[in-house]
């Protein structure tokens, strides 16, 4: 079953077409990776899918319904959640509170009950707290529960964003370079976390430069270059594809 469908999606920034007529589909329950050289448009695709940017042309469909043009907070309610390449952490809150914001849509958000601290609000907050501690342990930053988010090391913040995204209980999780800046051991740990997430039935779109990770865990890989689809296929097809090798070597040279 197709969970996400992107049709002739384009995004212009001034004169540059960051994404240019891109179409692809993501099957439910899979790990779908997007790779490509720097500036290929990977982050822009995530921004378009999650509503951070409105597309210049084209459309995004989630479960068959058109969702492009909706703001991010409505898409979150539709079951989309994501992490950021350059972290978006709430720096004046504790690590646990960061994750608890991820529960936002599942808590009592009315003003009056919050102001008067109704027992229902407190009870659901307590439950959310326990659930979020579990999530932090699940992604491997459990020891920072009470710490101020601003004091966490980089690697822990990357995991914290994953925990926060999971706290929304998404259908589709979009990860933007979760392993960037991590050492080899940490990368393997994040690798394992993503596999566990997928095993729970959450569909994952993964943007990553770490080829070992991408080749190891992806069901399907989309290769972008200059905002366009270079090719798409299973990991072994991609690894052997001459254009991919050329694009990467070309970009490296």
């Amino acid at each position: 079953m197709t969970l996400l469908r992107v049709e002739t999606l384009s995004k212009q920034f001034g004169g540059i077409a960051a994404v240019d007529g891109l179409s692809f589909a993501v099957e439910a329950g899979t790990i779908h990776s997007i790779i490509g050289p720097n500036g290929a448009g990977k982050t822009t695709v995530l921004n378009l899918v999650t509503g951070v940017y409105a597309p210049s042309r084209g459309a995004v469909y989630l479960d068959g319904a058109m969702v492009s043009g909706k703001p991010p907070y409505e898409l979150a309610a539709c079951g989309l959640s994501r992490t950021f390449q350059n972290l978006q952490i709430y720096t004046s809150m504790t690590a646990l509170e960061n994750v608890m914001v991820g529960r936002h849509l599942r808590l009592d958000r009315r003003l009056l009950p919050s102001l008067l601290r109704f027992p229902g609000v407190v009870r659901r907050d307590e439950a959310a707290r326990d659930r979020c501690i579990e999530l932090m342990e699940f992604v491997g930053c459990g020891r920072y529960v009470d710490a101020d988010a601003a004091s966490l090391p980089y690697g822990a913040l990357k995991r914290l964003e994953i925990a926060r995204a999971l706290a929304t209980e998404p259908k589709l999780l979009l990860l933007d370079e979760p392993a960037a800046g991590l050492n080899a051991t940490e990368s393997r740990e994040v690798d394992a976390v993503i596999k566990k997430i997928a095993a729970q039935g959450i569909t994952v779109i993964l943007v990553e430069h770490d080829m070992k990770m991408v080749m190891g865990i992806s069901d399907r890989i989309l290769v972008l270059n200059h905002g366009r689809k270079l090719t798409e296929g299973a990991p072994d097809e991609i690894a052997a594809h001459p254009d991919v090798i050329a694009a990467y070597l070309g970009a490296a040279a």
Partner: peptide, 15 residues
């Protein structure tokens, strides 16, 4: 407090 930190970061979790 979340939107004070980052508005985009708050929006993507439903705020």
């Amino acid at each position: 407090r979340a939107l004070h930190g980052t508005e985009i970061g708050a929006q993507v979790v439903g705020v």
